[in-house]
Simulated assay, not measured.
Amino acid sequence: MVRILVADEHALYRTGLRVVLQAALPEAEFLEAGDLDSLMRALQAERHIDLALVNLNLMGAASPSIIWDFKRASALTRYVVISTDGTFDQVLHYIAEGFHGFISTLQRDDEIVEAVREVLAGRLSIPRALTPFGSATERHRPPAVRQRRSSLQQSPFGLTPRQKDVLTLLADGLSNREIAQALHIAEPTTKIHVSGLMRVLNVRNRTEAAVIARDLIHTSAIDPQSRSKPRQRKIKPRQ
């Protein structure tokens, strides 16, 4: 059974979020924490917690580096930040430190449920409104930038099928070694593909590339179902 911990100082929001998630995930077990001490005790308990949804206010001045305290308490738990405010760069900072996602209290219930499912499935999750292709972000961009973003969505950068494969796996958070194993290619070749993708996407690091790749998949600029099949290695019969 999946165990989900909701950590928020406001009992009303904790209860509301738990009710929403419980309706969508009836098979899951839910716990609540109203302060940092009770959160840490729950993480250190004998029974494993699969996902911890932690309000930003609960972390105090130590955030986002507090993730290392969380991981020392429970290394296999996945952690998501809950907050009302946050920019794309701020959210990326949390992801880069080791958090697995960000949930805005302004998101719709179905979006929050989808985010929880994404993280439980081993992927990163960020509200689309905060990403470079998100509608809220786009409204504040100059027209020339919006036009360039639109053209990129219509034609996904002229990527080869193999580059699309790498980008899709990068969006799932796989390392270069894992991507190489999944596609049956050499790890140095994977590094070349990833470096090239980062240049094309104009991003600073793998984290930002993964987030933008996820956004491209959601906007159908990259079709996750269209990835080419891994090459099968031919085994020659012994003479």
Rank of each mutant, 00 (worst) to 15 (best):
P64L: 14
F133Y: 15
S150E: 15
E187I: 13
I192Y: 08
A121N: 05
R47C: 04
R3W: 00
V19M: 08
A24Y: 04
E97F: 13
P237L: 11
Q181L: 15
Q44L: 01
A213E: 01
S38L: 04
P156E: 08
M1A: 13
L201V: 09
L183C: 03
D50Y: 09
G134A: 15
V19F: 05
R238M: 09
L36H: 10
D85Y: 15
F88T: 01
M1V: 13
T131R: 11
L56D: 12
S151T: 11
A186R: 10
R18T: 03
L51C: 11
D172F: 06
I217D: 05
D165Q: 12
M40Y: 10
I112P: 02
D223K: 07
S226R: 14
E9Y: 01
A213L: 03
E97H: 14
A209V: 09
D50T: 07
D165W: 06
P64W: 14
Y79N: 06
I212R: 04
L167W: 07
R78P: 09
Y13A: 03
A121C: 01
G101Y: 01
G60R: 00
K191P: 00
Q154Y: 01
A96W: 02
K71S: 06
L39R: 00
S125D: 04
A73S: 14
H48R: 11
V81I: 15
D110T: 12
H184C: 04
F30W: 05
V19T: 08
A73V: 05
R162Q: 12
E9I: 00
A45I: 08
S151W: 07
R177I: 07
A186V: 02
E138G: 00
G60N: 02
Y79C: 08
V80R: 00
N55W: 06
L183R: 08
R149M: 07
A28Y: 03
K236R: 05
S150P: 03
I103D: 11
H10Y: 10
L106H: 09
Q163T: 00
T87H: 10
R238C: 06
L92E: 11
T84P: 00
L183E: 04
L197Q: 02
I235K: 13
L58R: 07
